[in-house]
Structures are given as structure tokens and as C-alpha cells.
Simulated assay, not measured.
Amino acid sequence: MEDTSAFAKAPTKKIKCAIGFYNLENLFDTKNDPAILDDDFTPGGFKEWNNYKFDKKIKKLSKVISKIGKGDTGTSPSLLGVAEVENKAVLQSLIKTDRLEDEGYDIIHYDSPDERGIDVGLLYKKKDFAVHKSEAITLYLETEEGDRDFTRDILYVQGNLLGTEVHILVNHWPSRRKGANETSQKRITAAKKNRKIIDNLVAQKPDARIIVMGDFNDGPHSESIKVHLAKTDFYNPMLYLGTRYEGSLNYNYEWFIFDQILFSNNFVRIYDNELLYERSDIYNDFYLTEYDGKYKGNPFRTYAGKKYLGGYSDHFPVYTILTATVKV
């Protein structure tokens, strides 16, 4: 165990860093992969997806990522969980853009069994975060007929963030496409799976610092989050962000905050805290929104059905600012 008294006596400085999560809305390459249902996102498919559209989306997303939390930290996020990416190659294209290439990002990604081939991943700055361990944890679901319902894995990453060990779970829970009530049990199952991982971590190390992030397809007040995931040992700042007029996505003229970042309570401890929670927010600057029309203020998305809009994503990113106390 680290000698905290020695740490307290050593010269230190405080550094602010951002941790974010961003659903990238179907970041597919243009190649047909026969193993997944990606035909729509090919030049001959329903979306007529091509290299021009891919490059444009990559550049737009890199602009967003470069600005998340920058007002507080002066730079791009130290950690960024992402969802709806087809493979590692599309993330490599993203971090090689002009806006991100000098930021020193690396990638953690595993191909999941999701039928559409969309996965979660983690971008991290190598100077801020040292990876110790990572793995894809299967979320096993069944259909009403008892067949396997293939969905995204949970990405688990353990590492050192600015001198402090953290455990990160990146999620993309089952959608509400067939109805919120009809699909709620799948998200409850996902919450319970996360909770089991958390309980195992805490059993091994009671003071483990844990961050759970993702597109949960449920809000902070949903049963899956409030009852099964964010128990008394977790702080969910997203409880205070979503309103009638603001959220991370808009569906049928209603705002939701499905994109969330939760923290174990040791991040909000106000004393002797080398990695202290400061605040959370939705990154929804004007350029990320529909400028006019009936969808004014909504996320400026890439597609609306078959119609190509050329926007960023149908979600806004969310982020948290932490203050790290590091040795000089």
C-alpha cells in the first residue's frame, strides 16, 4: 500500500483532466464485412455510405473530441469511452486526424458478438493513462423464444490515471427499439452484470475506484440505473443534468440523458483525495446542433433514415472534470 504520509510531504501540483463518453452514431467503414449486418453502410447499400462521407464524419467527430472539456482543462479528454464503432480501424482513422494526431491517443477495442457489428471502445492519452489490464466481458441475453440475443460486450479496463489506479466499465446497453417497457428487462440484466463486476472488484479491493460509463438507453431515474447499478456506493451526477429542455439525445421531441458517467463514492470524498470529482456536463455547443426547423437544438446527426444530413452524431457527448493531485 502506498505511503500516503510520504505522498503528502512530497511536492505536488493539481491537474484537471476530462473523462468523456460519446456515442458516435454508426461509425462504420465502407467495406462489406460478411460476418455482420453492415450492408447499409457500404457504397451500394441503403445509406450509400462511401469514403467521402466517412472522411467527413471522421473529421467532424475529431473536432468534437478535441473540444470536450477543453474549457476546463485546456486540452482534449484524457479518457473517452465510445459506442457504435464497427472496428478498431475506424478508431485508428479517428485518432490519426489532424486535430487528434498530436494528442497521443491509443485505443482499447474488442470485436463484440453484436449482429450489426457495433462495439464500444476506449480512447486514452498515453501520457495520462497507463493500461494494466483490459478485457471484453460478455453480456448474455436471450430473446423471448429462448435464443441467444447477441449484443455488445462490456469493456473492462484497469489502469493508472495520473497516478491513481482506476477501473473502467464501458457499456452500450440494449436499445428501446421494440418499446421501453418491452425491452427494460434486458437493460436490467445489463445493470446486474455491471453490478456483479463491481462487487467482485470491491471484494478484492474495498477502496477500488470505479468508473461506469456508457449509452445505457435508460435514464438516471430508470430502474436499471437507480435500483440495480447506482446503489449507495456510487454517485451519478447525471441525475442533475437532464431536464425537459436538455439531454444527450432527443427522441420524438423529448430529451433523454441515456449517456452517463458514474463514479464510486471515493471520487467525491473531500479529504485526502488524489483524484477528486469536480463537475459533469453535456457538451452541446451550438455547432453540434440542428440550426433551424422543427428539430432546432437537437443533435446534428449523420443520417435521418436514408437521408444524409452530414452531421456529427445523434447524441451529444457527456463529460466529467476531475482534479488530480500529482507528485512534481
Rank of each mutant, 00 (worst) to 15 (best):
residue 140 Y to K: 15
residue 276 L to Q: 09
residue 85 V to I: 14
residue 154 I to G: 10
residue 280 S to P: 10
residue 214 G to A: 03
residue 69 G to E: 01
residue 111 D to M: 04
residue 176 R to D: 02
residue 206 P to K: 15
residue 35 A to H: 01
residue 205 K to D: 15
residue 278 E to L: 12
residue 134 S to V: 10
residue 158 Q to V: 10
residue 126 K to I: 06
residue 105 Y to D: 10
residue 120 V to N: 05
residue 192 K to A: 12
residue 36 I to S: 00
residue 235 Y to D: 11
residue 92 Q to V: 05
residue 178 K to Y: 12
residue 84 E to L: 11
residue 234 F to G: 12
residue 212 V to S: 04
residue 289 T to N: 12
residue 131 V to I: 15
residue 131 V to G: 03
residue 152 R to S: 04
residue 166 V to A: 05
residue 259 D to V: 03
residue 86 E to Y: 08
residue 6 A to N: 14
residue 79 L to C: 05
residue 315 H to K: 04
residue 45 G to W: 04
residue 233 D to V: 08
residue 31 K to Y: 15
residue 101 E to G: 02
residue 132 H to V: 06
residue 296 K to T: 12
residue 208 A to N: 11
residue 94 L to H: 02
residue 231 K to Y: 09
residue 260 Q to R: 07
residue 35 A to V: 13
residue 171 N to V: 08
residue 78 S to H: 05
residue 270 I to C: 00
residue 225 I to Q: 04
residue 283 Y to V: 06
residue 185 Q to K: 13
residue 324 A to D: 11
residue 79 L to N: 09
residue 71 G to S: 11
residue 238 M to L: 05
residue 43 P to H: 06
residue 214 G to T: 04
residue 144 E to C: 08
residue 316 F to K: 02
residue 232 T to C: 01
residue 270 I to G: 01
residue 280 S to G: 05
residue 277 Y to N: 06
residue 186 K to E: 09
residue 157 V to L: 08
residue 131 V to Q: 04
residue 112 S to P: 02
residue 123 L to N: 05
residue 101 E to F: 15
residue 129 F to N: 08
residue 101 E to V: 15
residue 164 T to C: 03
residue 259 D to R: 01
residue 217 N to F: 02
residue 161 L to T: 12
residue 263 F to H: 03
residue 44 G to F: 06
residue 189 T to W: 04
residue 96 K to G: 00
residue 305 G to F: 00
residue 15 I to H: 07
residue 267 F to N: 06
residue 265 N to Y: 11
residue 82 V to K: 07
residue 219 G to R: 06
residue 85 V to A: 10
residue 244 R to W: 08
residue 260 Q to D: 11
residue 233 D to A: 02
residue 61 L to I: 09
residue 57 K to P: 11
residue 134 S to E: 14
residue 173 W to V: 03
residue 160 N to A: 00
residue 276 L to G: 13
residue 289 T to V: 00
residue 187 R to E: 05
residue 100 L to H: 12
residue 305 G to I: 05
residue 271 Y to H: 15
residue 57 K to I: 02
residue 23 N to P: 07
residue 198 I to A: 11
residue 65 I to F: 05
residue 132 H to L: 14
residue 180 A to K: 12
residue 75 T to D: 14
residue 77 P to W: 04
residue 163 G to N: 11
residue 193 K to W: 01
residue 187 R to H: 11
residue 22 Y to S: 00
residue 162 L to I: 07
residue 186 K to I: 00
residue 273 N to H: 10
residue 105 Y to M: 09
residue 204 Q to V: 00
residue 283 Y to P: 11
residue 192 K to T: 10
residue 78 S to R: 01
residue 110 Y to P: 12
